[in-house]
């Protein structure tokens, strides 16, 4: 009985934690003039957060056919969101630091 309860609690916790993690918005940091990941895979309709962890501005944008956006310039500690509506490969760049590049694969 006691063991059964423990197992149940553990499972419930495990599943809810798993659920929360899965439900969390993917976050891409900008640190040392680099994106924290080079590649990311998301589904159509997912929102990705871009957080600036550098003590200077970044300006995240993409001109890819699957997603064309400019998140503007924002300082350390701030972040901007973008929701992907179309499947395809999205090349994400920074308008201030041309060497910053990453790819987001948006799948159905």
């Amino acid at each position: 009985m006691n063991t059964a309860l423990k197992v149940l609690t553990t499972f419930t916790l495990w599943f809810s934690v798993g659920y929360v993690i899965a439900d969390q918005l993917p976050n891409v940091g900008q640190k040392d003039k680099k994106f924290s990941v080079e590649k990311l895979q998301v589904n159509v309709g997912d929102t990705v957060t871009f957080t600036n962890d550098d003590p200077f501005f970044h300006n995240v944008f993409s001109l890819s056919p699957a997603a064309t956006f400019d998140l503007g310039s924002y300082p350390q500690g701030e972040s901007r969101d973008i929701t992907f509506e179309e499947a395809g490969e999205v090349q994400v760049e920074c308008a201030i630091h041309p060497s910053m590049q990453m790819t987001i694969e948006v799948t159905e």
Binding site: F57, N59, D70, G72, S73, A95, I96
Partner: peptide, 8 residues
């Protein structure tokens, strides 16, 4: 916000 600062 769309005009970036260049001082750094």
């Amino acid at each position: 916000e769309l005009s970036p600062p260049w001082r750094h």
